[in-house]
Design a protein around this nucleic acid. Structure first.
Lengths: 201, 201
DNA sequence: CCAGTTCTTGACTGCGCGGTCCACGACGAC
DNA sequence: GTCGTCGTGGACCGCGCAGTCAAGAACTGG
């Protein structure tokens, strides 16, 4: 019994995420959210709570999804170092993805909210540490495969990779030409990954 | 004749800049600006125009100041490569500077506004290209001094350095531990700068 | 067909925002 | 001292915001 929902939760959350992603938290009004979702105020509030809770929700979903995708990319790579390279150059390869003007949702959140919102700061810090942890496993595998300098600490190296990737994403946000962005990404990837004295000839 | 101003313009602009820097544009209310400057609405508006013009003003001043400082650091370095390294590791070295939670004002602006405000996008893009240009000169000098791989294009290398530095700044914004941030900065600086096959032994 | 339950719609509220305006007062020229 | 000028401070305005709520619509089990 009772009336069923007339919207698909995933679709709504995706629309909300895209809105926050593109415009940021403060610059997104409730009316924006109603417009992109097509819902009324009551429905949105009943289903997801207020604006901030909705934001934290889609942010969490985003982190989960991207880390799942990252794990898949790293697992699918024939050699771990290929996966790492793909992670580094992805923002430049896909002009509709994280390298585009809107950047990475998680990074944008950290940038906009971290200084003022302890919850977002904690979430983003945790997410980036988790990401570094995922990458560290790939670094360790690359070391075993002889593609990464064996004396490096995997976690430290992974954090540097995260930083480098975020730098590339950021350059994309400044509206840099795609070809230039690609060159930057390739250059950085070479530098970050090819410090490989242990590679056997 | 007539009443002179009772405030120091530079002091006011610095306070405004710090407010925007810490909280961002959207999250800074006019009342915040009055509080940090101590001015009344009338004075602020008469002297600097509305909120957005004030923002663009302090952003421009910031870019000018930081690029001046960057030129000085690069010129003072005994070897160009030392200056480049200092640029890369600066965000991690100074916990009150760009590496702290508030990050780099220019980068924050690009992050928050670029997608929605064409003027800010153009300004930030231009500023980063200018920054890359400044660094490219140092790269070229480093090449002449035998400290940087001679076959690299200075401008491309400089853009990669900018990206790497912004990545480090960004990691600082996530609230990462200072020691870890320093490690990331050192690692990245080594990787970005020590691809120096041309160095004479 | 009815009863019960949940979802939906949109009017409503109070607040805080950016921005305007004007009366007051401090100051310099003379 | 007087007058003209311009900086100053705060009252004021309309708007758009986030969030609430009540009445009605849609659906299901019986």
């Amino acid at each position: 019994m009772a009336r069923p929902r007339q919207f698909d939760e995933k679709t709504v959350l995706a629309a909300v995420r895209d809105q926050f992603w593109t415009a940021g938290y403060a610059a997104t009004s409730l009316e924006d959210l109603l417009r992109v979702t097509g819902l009324g105020k009551g429905s949105l509030y009943a289903a997801f709570g207020d604006k901030r809770r909705l934001y934290l929700r889609v942010l969490g979903d985003y982190v989960e999804a991207t880390h799942g995708a990252l794990r898949a990319v790293l697992a699918d790579a024939p050699r771990a170092v290929d996966g790492l390279r793909r992670y580094l150059t992805a923002p430049a390869a896909d002009p509709t993805g994280a390298g585009a003007l809107r950047g990475c949702f998680l990074a944008n959140s950290a940038s906009e909210m971290a200084a003022a919102d302890a919850d977002v700061l904690a979430a983003s810090r945790g997410a980036f540490e988790e990401r570094a942890g995922i990458l560290a496993e790939a670094v360790a595998r690359a070391q075993r495969e002889g593609d990464f300098s064996a004396d490096a600490d995997p976690l430290h190296a992974a954090r540097a990779i995260v930083a480098a990737q975020q730098g590339i994403v950021f350059m994309g946000r400044t509206g840099i030409d795609v070809a230039e962005l690609r060159a930057v990404a390739e250059t950085l990837a070479d530098q970050v990954l090819s410090a490989t004295p242990a590679r056997q000839p």
